[in-house]
Simulated assay, not measured.
Amino acid sequence: MEKIIITTEETCNLSKELLDKYNIKKCDVTFWVDGVEHNSKTTDMTPQEFYGNMRNGSDVKTSQVNLQEAKDFLEPYFQQGYRILHIGFSSGLSGTYNNFKLAMSELNKKYNAHNVAIDSLCASIGQGLLVIEVAKKLEYGMEYDKLVEYAENMKWNINHIFTLDDLKYLVKGGRISKTSATIANVLNIKPVLHTDNNGKLVSIGKVFGRQLALKNLVEKMAINYNPQFKDVFICEADCNSDAIKLAGMVEKRFGVRPTILPLTYFIGCHSGPGTISLFYVGDKRV
């Protein structure tokens, strides 16, 4: 019987408990706060401290996993004789997946293996939710080639919808103009966005005020939520009270209580404190 391992990156946003539960191995990432380097594996900075620093004007940056880092992460599993299925961060948002794809190709040649890196076209718990659903199939005994096929098909059903509290972080990332952000903030306009089929962040609506934004997330979920899948997640960037409120709205509407997790540094540094996201499996992407 083949030894199969599922690997991913810190961008999957899964807690240690979930990683351990499904025996998922993740590659950690590097980020900087005011020029000081941190690693997601070793940092003692709490999410509250990280987002507090952002609110206070700290300069935060991230770095994609480079080719050598990808090879260093994957090679021990080749050496141990595993069939490796790597589910990577969206190529529409980062070059990390392409580096893992190249690393996998080079190591396959070196070890005469046939392992696969999949572009999830997902981010944050969207990526993590795909990883979990594939890991469940592995637990049930699904063979490697079928796991690859399942992952490639399931990724089109992973939904990520979210809203932001302050658009200045999108300005910093070059995603919107400073003028547009200023007008939106003055008028208290909150964007609703999702990750589309190209793995990119796309606006799907605008509402006035935070509470209407939370309500809109639930209304979007109602369009295509598949109730056969009970794992629903909320990620919050230092806005836990809103996350609890959103979880209550989801539970009342759909009868499932979402798991709430802090938004990982790697994602949150681009969207900023106050970001709140809802993840679920649907019939398609909303």
Score class of each variant (00 low, 15 high):
R253V: 02
N159A: 11
G81T: 12
L121R: 15
G126N: 12
M249Q: 03
G274W: 13
A237I: 01
Y280V: 11
L130E: 12
G268K: 10
K206R: 12
V281N: 12
L193H: 07
P273K: 05
Y82M: 10
E10D: 14
H114I: 12
I276M: 10
S120R: 08
D34G: 03
Y265C: 04
T182E: 10
L212W: 12
L170A: 02
S91V: 09
V256D: 04
N198I: 13
L201M: 11
W156L: 12
Y280S: 06
A70P: 04
N240Y: 14
S203N: 10
E143M: 15
I223D: 10
D165C: 01
S180I: 08
V36F: 03
Y225M: 00
N185F: 02
E2V: 08
E49S: 14
Y150K: 05
N98G: 11
V36K: 09
F78R: 10
K215P: 01
L187D: 04
T62Q: 09
D44H: 03
F89E: 08
N157H: 14
K146I: 09
D28F: 13
A103N: 01
E133R: 11
A247T: 00
F279P: 13
E49P: 14
G272K: 05
L85W: 03
K21I: 01
E106L: 13
N13C: 03
I244E: 07
T195F: 15
L67F: 07
S105L: 13
G173V: 01
F266Q: 15
L217R: 00
N159Y: 06
F100N: 04
F162V: 04
Q68D: 15
C235A: 10
F162D: 06
A247K: 05
M249K: 00
H114D: 15
G128N: 07
F208N: 12
D145R: 09
D20P: 04
Y51K: 10
V256P: 05
